[in-house]
């Protein structure tokens, strides 16, 4: 593990990127979208809440690079702002999941039996609540909103991180240097912090990138069904929801090809490219890092799809 981390960050960096074009593509695409989202904080072509019915359903043009939606809002601005929402929600959810899950997993590995049992049962229990069910409960409690999505996805992330941390820390806890540390008088907490945590960090980061991309998707799903981000704020899932209602309001019998075209323009042209590309890049980045950072004997099947079978 030490070795692979060094290979990632040392002088051979240039060579390394050359050998992993996937990583470069994923990284660049992810950065690009992150940047796009960040820019929207200080500048968007138009204010995203600016409604102008006279200019609705416009096609791409110089004034509106991606056209306008059913309310005449500028699509490019919406996409920029929506990207930020998706990123922020997913990142906060990862932070919640890792912030609670990793300590739990470490505690399970460091203290052993009773704690382990408790942590594993707890994460089993949380697993029984898919993010959407949590979101439903939270919505019923507090009403819909982006915070909802963060809570729901974050809660769902906790057992994932707990499991990964516990599993990987367990394999390290049996190694000699941990025993040495124990001989030197370190307690379980110190062992967990000084020896286990640094050694499982790579896996946690990998899992984090994967959960980030899943979180983006989950946020889109929740917003799409109306449990996530609420207008006037926007997210990519919410945009798809708006676009679909447009497409069904204009049935083909009534508006003919125009409706199809309009609907198609509305979401396929704009959102498809954006969403698909963004998720792909996030996932690709996750996978690549996965390959470079992954320690050898670990076994996260979903996390590491490509393992050279040596």
């Amino acid at each position: 593990m030490r070795w692979s981390i060094r290979a990632c960050g040392s002088a051979a960096r240039h060579e390394f990127f050359k050998r992993h074009p996937n990583l470069v593509i994923g990284l660049v695409a992810t950065m690009l979208f992150a940047l796009l989202g960040l820019i929207s904080l200080v500048w968007t072509p138009y204010p995203i809440a600016q409604i102008d019915i006279g200019r609705r359903f416009l096609g791409p043009m110089a004034a509106h690079w991606l056209g306008t939606d059913n309310l005449g809002r500028d699509m490019a601005s919406l996409v920029m702002s929506g990207t930020l929402t998706s990123f922020v929600v997913a990142a906060l959810a990862v932070a919640i999941g890792a912030g609670i899950g990793v300590p739990l997993g470490l505690a399970a590995a460091a203290w052993g039996r009773p704690v382990e049992w408790l942590v594993l049962r707890f994460s089993d229990f949380l697993f029984a609540f898919p993010a959407i069910i949590v979101a439903i409960l939270v919505t019923a409690l507090f009403g819909p909103g982006a915070i909802n999505a963060v809570l729901a996805i974050g809660l769902f992330n906790i057992p994932v991180f707990a499991r990964v941390a516990q599993g990987s820390a367990l394999s390290i806890a049996t190694l000699d240097f941990v025993a040495t540390g124990r001989l030197a008088g370190l307690g379980p907490a110190a062992i967990a912090y000084r020896h286990l945590l640094p050694n499982i960090m790579s896996l946690i980061i990998v899992q984090g990138t994967i959960q980030l991309s899943l979180g983006i998707l989950a946020e889109a799903g929740l917003s799409y069904v109306g449990l996530g981000t609420q207008p006037p704020a926007t997210s990519l899932g919410l945009m798809l929801r708006d676009a679909q209602s447009m497409f069904l309001i204009h049935p083909p019998a009534d508006a003919g090809a125009g409706a199809v075209h309009r609907a198609d323009r509305d979401w396929s042209q704009y959102c498809r490219g954006w969403i698909a590309r963004r998720h792909r890049s996030a996932a690709a980045a996750g996978e690549c890092q996965c390959r470079c950072l992954r320690s050898k004997g670990s076994s996260c099947a979903s996390a590491a799809p490509r393992r050279s079978a040596m």
Partner: peptide, 10 residues
């Protein structure tokens, strides 16, 4: 990879 990235509702 594409299949994972595309949201199912889309």
């Amino acid at each position: 990879q594409l299949g994972v990235a595309v949201p199912n509702f889309w």
